[in-house]
């Protein structure tokens, strides 16, 4: 039998190599490009921390960061709903097997399809939403994606909906992972389904729940897809998030150095937030984190 040290190395090596080479090197390089004045085409010029300083004073960056944080907050809150749904689906009531599959179907759709669907939902004149609103007598329904005061929230809904399946699936698997014996024992003690859910199931999947908080926050802070397709960050930046701002700078404005700096800041911010979440949610008996 090999010694533990060798086994540890052997089991970690593939993951370590892949992540080090394909994620860490690009990450370091993007931090490095952030020190450059570079349009992504011509010659690079070293300018020190100028891009980073500029970013800290850039109102557009901060407003996009605020939008990203709002998305993170909404995504995290929605986890509670997903958990409730997963509790119902994982319970013994009839038909949940079919319901589970149906509920998770939208998560299979690509962002392209989801974006097209919601563009049609929100279309101001022919859209599903406004057709319904006008049918019930609202004469001037909102222009969902054109009104700077509501566009951000209008676009959060499809994003949160897009990921519902993902979290429900994780919770569901976690709940199914709880041994039947534990629940049977509680039933014999006369616990109601609600009590079982809150007092037994929830504590048992707390670890998983904490992980999903981190996933939801990190995923939201670097979110890009639907925002880029549905509004392009507009109108005039009203729905801009950090990743879309970064993309535009690097690829549309030809400011690759500055874009890279923003991308690197995004990473730092995400990292700090993650550490805070871990500290807040940490309990003594945890050894993993």
């Amino acid at each position: 039998m090999m010694s533990n040290k060798w086994i540890i190395t052997l089991y970690l090596l593939p993951a370590f190599l892949l992540i080090a080479v394909l994620i860490f090197i690009p990450l370091i390089l993007s931090g490095y490009y952030g020190l450059m004045n570079w349009d992504g085409i011509g010659i690079m010029q070293f300018i020190g921390f100028e891009n980073y300083i500029q970013a800290l004073q850039d109102m557009k960056f901060w407003s996009s960061a605020l939008h990203s944080f709002l998305l993170a907050a909404f995504s995290t809150l929605s986890l509670i709903v997903y958990l409730a749904v997963a509790l119902i689906l994982a319970s013994k009531i009839k038909g949940t097997n079919l319901l589970r599959k149906i509920y998770l179907i939208p998560m299979l759709l690509s962002s392209v399809a989801i974006a097209q669907l919601w563009i049609k939902v929100y279309n101001p004149t022919n859209g599903m939403l406004n057709s319904i609103l006008m049918a019930i007598g609202i004469e001037n329904p909102p222009e969902w994606l054109a009104d700077p005061s509501i566009v951000l929230f209008a676009i959060f809904i499809p994003i949160i909906w897009q990921y519902a399946g993902f979290y429900i699936l994780i919770y569901y698997a976690a709940l199914k992972n709880i041994p039947d014996t534990v629940i049977e024992a509680a039933k014999i003690d006369g616990a109601t389904p609600l009590q079982i859910a809150l007092k037994i199931k929830l504590p048992l999947i707390m670890n998983v729940f904490k992980v999903t908080i981190v996933l939801a926050v990190v995923g939201s802070l670097k979110y890009f897809d639907l925002i880029y397709v549905m509004t392009g960050g507009g109108p005039n930046g009203a729905s801009e998030v950090m990743a879309s701002y970064m993309y535009k700078l690097a690829f549309s404005s030809n400011d690759f150095g500055y874009g890279s700096a923003i991308g690197f800041l995004l990473l730092i911010i995400t990292l700090i937030v993650t550490v805070i979440i871990r500290k807040v949610t940490a309990t003594k008996e945890e050894i993993e984190y």
């Binding site: 994620i23 970064m246 990292l271």
Partner: peptide, 14 residues
Amino acid sequence: IGLMIPMHSALIPL
């Protein structure tokens, strides 16, 4: 930390 890298930052280095 690998979770946190925005994809578009990695594109050109990759």
